[in-house]
Design a protein around this nucleic acid. Structure first.
Length: 889
RNA sequence: GGUCGCGUAGCUCAGCGGUAGAGCACUCGCUUCACACGCGAGUGGUCGCUGGUUCGAUCCCAGCCGCGACCACCA
């Protein structure tokens, strides 16, 4: 117990409070409760925290902190991802900036060493940022996708899938990134619209005209690929070309003969209806070429420069020319030969590497593939059966749509940073797939009948997502038989953004079901995208990127966390703005000051009230009732992934209920009450603050701890407290308190509207008040006097002359003001109230006048309407009487 | 082309079958002994449009108009 300073200083307090939590062991699994696990989506080891991380981390932290409070044994698994391409790119760029030799000049081992030291240097950034956010991650068991254990898991998975035939090597078209000179998966390709052209070229018929026809015209957006054409395809039903099918054309420039073939692929209504077929550089053409046994002619090298070889008939002058340069050359030569048949501007969709930003080239290469179609079967079933559920549920549709049409997953990358493919080749190219080189040697020796041979390991590394796909079980010690897996697998929740469903969620589902025979998580929570304050997507080019750490620097982590949680609705992106964060900073200050008020009045948090049913004062029973409802709403919000509802419940209760009313209504008791009443009220005020702190802690872990630490006296330690009581209901206490509250509100409103000076004290006369109202007023007389600035409360049969009149809860009240009264304002106010009552009355009467409503609507709804008619009629009568009296003045 | 989502107060968003809500902004009071990062009182909305279902529709259904996202794409 110590005094709270006048203001809360998050910059000083948050790091101190974080260290204390970590030191106490809070972040590691504790106790014997039902296990609850979340694995963090591993951030890039060299990355830094962006708003998406801030949101996702906050939400996971809320879940974990809440579940700990419920007594669950919580593991929030930390770890980082080696992020193959991204990291290699960063290091290469840095080497270039420092004018160091290129990676190829220093060699693979030296380069990989460099990346490891880069990781050692900058790997701690994101971890520190997560700490500053308040993430209660279990750092002690942090993992890295390339650490020894996880690498062993990767090798085991590869080898097993290989032996089962679910990983295989294949030569087919891949998305080739000419900048990084590696294959990438479909998911790493972004389609963008760009301004392009559509050229029309004439290919002359090789054996002379057929009738009048001397040529066939094809359309293309990529002229340079014509050098690799293997055929021209037309639709079999296309009357224009019926007689040409089977004829040969002379391919210009390359000077080769290629056939005209019939295939369903060309759309007769598009362009000329004739399509050039470049099997080695176009995915659609590749399929056509395969169907018709058309040769695949490779035109480019790894950097997408043209190559001229004896096999491909590309003229020597193209050799080494960049593909876009070659395009210009082809167009010029076609024009020279008089074979151009026009060109149109056209917006075309081009594939770009999501990391490199360069145009992807379809290339014919040998790569390793995972048979995703087979692995997807149980992964689809698990979501269909509900074993794993998406929240919000509509994301399961996205998942199915992709999984139902899944293509083989290209997992090899021609990079150096990553898990090297565990395959070794013998002198004759025989592959030996094994978890270790020595095992590969053993297999080779057996294969070559005892002869010892040199083996060469496959040069490629695995797609980064291959190792992340194992994350939910590899981090728990798989393939070892560990207690962690027994306790925490399957994990409870996986929280991520929608764009990661394909990259990661689907692949974890496939791998986990194959190797663990169980789903990796029960719930997949898909969080929203964080946008800027105008709902615009953040981007560097727009210059609207928000760095969450700027908010942490300025306000501390609590307000940022609360802002993110409060806006985390389902199914809509959230707009993050400084004013919103500021608003929750103000909320934190409000809470802080409420705590200071309690402290000034000598009210600690004691945890002494175990049963609110013993409370005597309606105020205290009502406070307990409301606090209980709040605790329940917060818990339900978190359980249902409605973080916005949880945040709103604690916010509204703290500010609007506890500060605006409970504390204010308690002041007169504390000042003038009996010793018993004072003691009870103090205890409940303390208890209610305690409930607020505990319910708020998942969202604002810092300020809640700081306040508790200063005010706890005799209660258990903060982290040992369980969730506040959420089942105390006392509706009998609600009515009298609401009567008092609405009267005070009406009085304040009336005073303001008729311009009674704020400081003026008035007398209050209740007219013909029934016994019940008299009792309720008597119970709150001091509060009403204080909060509505009333001098005396009296009772009378009729209002005195020259009084302001108002109707609250069916009772007319008068405020005698003699000469102070503003007649016009008073008349206007009564007219306004009368109009409102008339409006309500008309509406309710209208409904009841409709006999079909009375006949068909549920009886309780009809009854409600009748009650409304009664209520508003009574109010109207009294208001009109008040107006008549006023007019008589 | 397929799929999903969104149009509610000036802004950002809740609500989703029976009296339109929040935060911020705005207006008017207030140095009221926890708090001006505050207190009190207000202004502001034919809930995108048109039909339908229903006793009743912001909420359900259909169509339309605007906006966004994802997937697949015609060379």
């Amino acid at each position: 117990m110590h005094d709270l300073p006048k203001t809360f200083d998050p910059i000083e307090a948050e790091p101190r409070l974080y260290q204390a939590q970590e030191k106490s062991g809070l972040f590691a699994p504790q106790g014997v409760g039902d296990p609850y696990a979340i694995v963090i989506p591993p951030p890039n080891v060299t990355g830094s925290l962006h708003v998406g991380h801030a949101l996702n981390t906050t939400l996971q932290d809320i879940l974990c902190r809440f579940r700990r409070r419920q007594g669950r044994r919580v593991l929030w698994q930390f770890g980082t991802d080696h992020a193959g391409i991204a990291t290699q790119m960063v290091v290469e760029r840095q080497m270039a900036e420092r004018q160091e030799p290129h990676r190829r000049d220093i060699g693979r081992d030296a380069f990989v060493d460099k990346v490891w030291s880069w990781k050692a240097e900058s790997g701690g950034t994101i971890e520190n940022q997560l700490r500053r956010l308040g993430a209660s991650l279990d750092w002690s068991r942090g993992r890295f996708t390339m650490d020894e254990g996880l690498s062993a898991a990767v090798r085991k998975v590869f080898v097993e899938l290989y032996r089962e035939g679910l990983i295989y090597r294949d030569k087919r078209l891949v998305n080739w990134d000419p900048k990084f000179q590696t294959a990438i998966s479909d998911l790493e390709v972004e389609s963008n619209e760009v301004n392009g052209h559509m050229w029309r070229f004439a290919y002359p018929l090789a054996d002379g005209p057929v009738g009048d026809v001397k040529e066939i015209v094809i359309a293309t957006t990529r002229p340079e690929t014509m050098l690799g054409d293997g055929a021209v395809a037309v639709h079999p039903d296309d009357e224009r070309y019926k007689d040409l099918i089977g004829k040969m054309v002379r391919l210009p420039i390359a000077d080769r003969l290629i056939p005209i073939i019939a295939d369903e692929y060309p759309d007769p209504d598009f362009g000329s209806g004739a399509v050039k077929i470049t099997g080695a550089h176009d995915f659609n053409d590749f399929e056509v070429a395969r169907r018709h046994n058309i040769p695949l002619i490779v035109l480019m090298d790894e950097e997408a420069r043209m190559i001229s070889t004896p096999d491909n008939n590309v003229p020597e002058r193209f050799h080494g020319v960049d593909r876009f340069e070659a395009r210009k050359m082809v167009v010029a030569e076609i024009e020279e030969q008089g074979l151009s048949r026009g060109v149109d501007d056209k917006i075309i969709v081009q594939p770009f590497g999501d990391r490199s930003g360069v145009v992807i080239e379809p290339m014919l290469t040998d790569q390793w593939y995972v048979d995703a179609k087979t692995l997807a079967v149980p992964a689809i079933e698990a979501v269909k059966s509900g074993k794993t559920q998406f929240v919000p549920s509509n994301w399961s549709k996205t998942y199915f749509q992709w999984m139902d049409n899944i293509e083989p997953w290209c997992i090899s990358r021609q990079l150096w940073w990553g898990h090297r493919i565990p395959v070794w080749y013998g002198p004759d190219g025989t592959p030996f797939c094994a978890e270790s080189e020595s095992e590969a040697h053993r297999m080779a020796t057996e294969h070559y009948d005892g002869e010892a041979v040199d083996l060469i390991q496959d040069n490629d590394v695995l797609d980064t997502w291959f190792s992340s796909a194992l994350w939910p079980f590899s981090t728990l010690g798989w393939p070892g038989d560990t207690q962690e897996q027994k306790d925490f697998y399957p994990t409870a929740v996986l929280s991520t953004a929608f764009d990661i469903i394909f990259f990661w969620v689907a692949r974890m589902m496939m791998m986990a079901l194959h190797f663990k025979k169980d789903v990796p998580f029960e719930t997949v929570y898909i969080h929203a995208l964080v946008r800027d304050e105008h709902g615009q997507k953040m981007s560097k080019s727009k210059g609207n990127v928000i760095d969450p750490m700027d908010f942490v620097d300025e306000f501390g982590a609590d307000p940022l966390r609360f802002a993110l949680a409060a806006q985390a609705t389902q199914g809509r992106d959230l707009s993050l703005s400084k004013s919103r964060v500021e608003g929750y900073r103000n909320f934190r200050t409000k809470l802080w000051n409420a705590a200071r008020f309690l402290q000034i009045r000598g009210i600690p948090i004691t945890g002494s009230i175990t049963d609110p049913a013993v409370l005597k004062l309606p105020l205290n029973r009502w406070m307990a009732h409301e606090a209980s409802a709040m605790a329940k709403a917060v818990a339900e919000g978190i359980e249902n992934f409605r973080f916005d509802e949880a945040a709103s419940a604690v916010y509204q209760f703290t500010w609007r209920t506890y500060c605006d009313w409970c504390i204010e209504l308690a002041k007169p008791v504390l000042d003038d009450g009996t010793p018993e009443d004072i003691a009870e009220t103090k205890a409940v005020l303390g208890e209610t603050l305690d409930a607020i702190l505990i319910a708020l802690e998942p969202m604002m872990p810092f300020v809640s701890r700081e306040i508790f630490g200063a005010m706890n006296e005799g209660s258990a330690a903060f982290d040992d407290r369980s969730w506040p009581a959420s089942d105390f209901v006392d509706n009998a206490a609600v009515a009298p308190m609401e009567t008092a509250i609405s009267l005070i509100s009406e009085l304040r409103s009336t005073r303001a509207e008729v311009n009674v000076p704020a400081a003026a004290k008035l007398n209050l006369v209740a007219i013909n008040a029934p016994e019940k109202t008299r009792e309720q007023l008597a119970a709150q007389v001091s509060a009403i006097k204080r909060m509505a600035r009333i001098e005396e409360i009296t009772f009378a049969d009729k209002p005195p002359k020259g009084a302001i009149q108002l109707v609250s809860d069916g009772v007319t009240y008068a405020l005698p003001v003699a000469d102070v009264i503003d007649l016009d304002a008073e008349m206007a106010r009564l007219d306004k109230d009368i109009a409102a009552a008339q409006g309500q009355l008309k509406k309710a009467k209208g409904k009841l006048g409709n006999e079909r409503f009375v006949a068909k609507a549920p009886p309780e709804v009809v009854e409600e309407e009748r009650a409304r008619v009664a209520k508003f009629s009574e109010e109207l009568t009294q208001l009109e009487a008040a107006k008549a009296r006023l007019a008589a003045l």
